[in-house]
Simulated scan of single mutants.
Amino acid sequence: MTPSHARPPLIVFDLDGTLLDTHTDLVESLNHTIAALGLDPVSYDDLTHLVGHGARVMIERACRLRGHPLESDALPALVERFVAHYAGNMPGRTEPYPGLVAAMDRLKSARYRLAVCTNKMESLALGLLEKLDLVRYFDAITGGDSFTVRKPDARHLTGTIERAGGDITRSVMIGDSINDIAVARNAGVPSIAVPFGYSDVPVSNLDPDMIITHYDELTPELVERLLREYAVKVAV
């Protein structure tokens, strides 16, 4: 049996604002959706307060921001409108963040496993990654509807780790928002925050275990160091 410390790590990524810069397409689909209610469009500056919990919550928050609280029975049709527009325009102007693909190539060459854990609907996450020819990198892709829970519930991350064939003691969560850092903390997994996503506060305020400012920094050596430091931290 392979000792846990010798097993290749699993790196679990958030999607929006972490793997992919999706802001233009999210804003366009959201504005298309709320236009059905005659509401003024939202902007990129609003996006940090809206994303992170999936399309349903994003629409609810956008409507509330525009002074139009929704009745629950109005949401399904709006979610359907959003999904149809977003899926129909993939990949739009969405693209991986600089250095991401090279970083994933480095990790895969070192036999690392990779996964995605996002609150975006699984079908949308999978469809987007397929359009960008990135699905081949991942051992598991889970969304906000893959389980009965979603981030920051620890079971979303632990379920993703299990699907990817990973070891929780050799896993790392990378994300851009409070949900990502919180789900890692709740699951007992070290976290890496990236500052170029959609957090409405500086990621340093979220108390991640590490911050990287560019994917050039994401190397096997850095991951192994983080895992060692985290093991010492939790043992104290």
Rank of each mutant, 00 (worst) to 15 (best):
M1Q: 09
P3R: 05
P3F: 10
H5M: 14
V12R: 07
V12N: 05
F13N: 01
D14Q: 00
L19R: 07
D21G: 04
D25Y: 10
V27C: 13
L30Q: 09
S43R: 15
L47D: 01
V51A: 08
A55Y: 02
V57Y: 08
V57C: 02
M58V: 00
E60P: 00
R66F: 05
L70T: 02
L75Y: 09
E80S: 11
R81H: 13
A84G: 03
A87V: 10
N89P: 00
N89E: 08
G92M: 04
G92Q: 03
R93G: 12
E95P: 00
P98F: 01
G99L: 06
V101S: 12
V101L: 15
A102V: 05
D105I: 10
S109R: 07
T118R: 09
G127T: 09
E130V: 08
V135D: 14
A140M: 06
I141P: 00
P152D: 08
A154L: 13
R155A: 11
R155V: 07
T158G: 08
R163N: 05
D167G: 04
T169E: 15
D180Y: 11
D180S: 13
D180K: 12
V183E: 12
N186W: 12
V189D: 05
V194H: 04
P195V: 05
P195I: 06
P195E: 02
G197P: 05
S199I: 00
P202E: 10
S204A: 15
N205D: 15
N205P: 02
L206N: 03
D209E: 12
M210L: 15
I211D: 00
T213G: 07
H214C: 06
H214T: 13
E229K: 12
V232K: 13
K233C: 01
